[in-house]
Each structure stands twice: as structure tokens, then as C-alpha cells.
């Protein structure tokens, strides 16, 4: 029987060294809410688990709306939900993180885990992408920063190189009347994986006209996909703009038929959610 080792390094450099030196299959552990399920189901058989939670700074939130926020990679969804300043500045990111699994799961699950599990349906990922989030990655050749949307390359696959792991997330300073929102569709009211997820960030001018927008869809393609937001820029999100947005969202869909939904259903609901999420983000931005 291949044996499994567990280590919990206490510095970033130790963690990088352990990951870089590992010869067999290795997994980085933050919240563990996906990792333990996969372990038990036999879908993965790592020889080494590297628990990052003993690294100082890997959990916790610093910063403000004015200067942007830095969120430790293993910070739990529950902590994000309890952070009033973050919640006020980035309600969409926080509501997305607080939709991952149950309240129990939110007591452990992290943004880094949700991103690196690389599921097309991950709730927090479209929200972080729409918010313009970036990640700081530690690796054998030092640290680097990358946009959140550059990490997932396909179901279960990321762009992280051997020895690399995510140390933190950064959400930019809030400029002007900007806000975000995240909605997902699930068959029940809780506990399901997103059939479609949609993150939207919108900036409006004093008159309520949209000056910038970023939209990301989840669960409708092998990775999160951007939606061309030009159809709503310069509008006040009137019915005509919403109809164009609906069509633009549907045009980006390349989903699969599976136990969670059909191609036709996912595509239609992507349009519905794009409209509804944009409306919430628009109203929030206007209220700034």
C-alpha cells in the first residue's frame, strides 16, 4: 500500500521547498472540504499532503475599501462573512464564498481551495474574477502575481507550476460608484453545486450610467468564461441593455448535459442570471 505523509510547514519558503522537492503526487491542503472528499472516494491518492494553515498570514484579512483587501489563501468563508468592511466593499465576493457548501463547510472552505480545485462550477471564482481579483503565488523562483482568471485551465487543472501555491488574494481599492454581486442557480435552496453561476462588477457615474463592467459565468463551460460587457456600458441597464446582456451571456455558453442540468437549460438560465446579477450590482453601485 502506498503510504500517505502529512506535513504542516510554518513558513512559505519551507512549503515551497517541500512542494518542489516532492517526488510523488502531492496535494496542498487549506480548508480540505474538497480534498477529503476526493481522498475518501479514492479519486486521488496523494503521497504527501502539505497543510498550509500553520503559515503565518495564510489566514486573515487586511486592508480597506480605500486601499484594497488582501485575503490570506486559507481564510475561511465564515471569516469573510464576518468581516463587515469586506462585506460592504465586495458584497458579491462574500456572498459567493458564503454559498460554498453548507455553513459547516464555510467554517473550513477557502478561496484558494475553491479556485485550485478548478471546478467549472466553483461559486467564488466568477465573483473574484468579476471583482478584478488577483492572486499572489509563491514558488521556487519567488513570488508572482496573476489575475484570478488565469489560474483555472480546465476541469481539475490549473496553471500553477510544480512547487507553486497561492499565498493570498488581492481585491483592488474601490474606485467611485462600484459594486458587485453574485447569483447562482441550484435546484434546491442550498447544498447544491451551481448549475450556473454569475459574478458581475459594475461602475456607474453620478447619473447612473454604466462606465465599466466585468462579468464572469461559471458552470457553463470547462472554465469560467467572461461575458462581453460592452452591451451594457453607456446604458442605465434599461430593458434593451438587459436583453442584449442576456444574449451575450448565452452566446458564451458551452455547457454539458449532466445530472445537474441540460445544455439548453444552462444556456437559458445563464442569460437570466446575467440580467438578474447585473441588476443587483447596478443598484448597489448606484447606492454608493
Amino acid at each position: 500500500m502506498p503510504s500517505l505523509n502529512y506535513v504542516a510547514p510554518t513558513t512559505v519558503s519551507d512549503a515551497v521547498k517541500i512542494l518542489a522537492d516532492a517526488s510523488g503526487p502531492t496535494r496542498v491542503l487549506s480548508g480540505g472540504t474538497d480534498l477529503l472528499v476526493q481522498l475518501r472516494a479514492g479519486r486521488i491518492s496523494p503521497e504527501l499532503i502539505v497543510d498550509t494553515k500553520k503559515i503565518p498570514g495564510i489566514m486573515g484579512i487586511t486592508g480597506s475599501a480605500a486601499e484594497g483587501f488582501t485575503i490570506g489563501a486559507a481564510t475561511t468563508g465564515a471569516e469573510l462573512g464576518d468581516h463587515q468592511a469586506l462585506k460592504a466593499a465586495y458584497p458579491g465576493v462574500v456572498e459567493a464564498a458564503n454559498l460554498i457548501g453548507s455553513k459547516q463547510v464555510q467554517g473550513r472552505a477557502s478561496l484558494a481551495g475553491n479556485l485550485c480545485n478548478a471546478s467549472p462550477a466553483a461559486d467564488s471564482v466568477p465573483a473574484v474574477i468579476a471583482a478584478g481579483g488577483t492572486v499572489t503565488i509563491a514558488g521556487p523562483s519567488g513570488t508572482r502575481t496573476a489575475p484570478a482568471e488565469s489560474i483555472v485551465t480546465g476541469p481539475g487543472r490549473t496553471s500553477l507550476a510544480k512547487g507553486e501555491f497561492i499565498v493570498s488574494f488581492h481585491l483592488p481599492a474601490i474606485k467611485g460608484k462600484t459594486s458587485d454581486a453574485y447569483l447562482r442557480f441550484i435546484p434546491r435552496t442550498e447544498m447544491d453545486i451551481a448549475v450556473v453561476g454569475c459574478g458581475v462588477s459594475i461602475t456607474v457615474d453620478a447619473g447612473g450610467t454604466i462606465t465599466a463592467a466585468k462579468i464572469s459565468l461559471g458552470a457553463v463551460a470547462p472554465t469560467q468564461v467572461p461575458v462581453d460587457a460592452s452591451c451594457i456600458i453607456g446604458t442605465k441597464l434599461d430593458d434593451a441593455a438587459l436583453a442584449k446582456l442576456d444574449a451575450a451571456a448565452q452566446a458564451m455558453c458551452n455547457p454539458i448535459d449532466d445530472k445537474r442540468g441540460t445544455i439548453e437549460f444552462r444556456t437559458k438560465v445563464a442569460g437570466v442570471l446575467a440580467r438578474r446579477t447585473a441588476k443587483i450590482a447596478y443598484d448597489r453601485a448606484g447606492a454608493r
Binding site: L29, G31, G32, L36, V37, I49, K103, Q104, G107
Partner: peptide, 19 residues
């Protein structure tokens, strides 16, 4: 399998014993 760890509830099936 819900337990409370340091004031936060979680599923004990999703936590390694060594953690």
C-alpha cells in the same frame, strides 16, 4: 458529523484528525 472547532462549526468528516 457536525462538531465545533474553535467556535466554528464544521463537518468532522472534512477535517483530518491530525489537523
Amino acid at each position: 458529523c457536525t462538531v465545533i472547532i474553535d467556535g466554528r462549526m464544521t463537518c468532522s468528516c472534512l477535517v483530518l484528525a491530525v489537523e
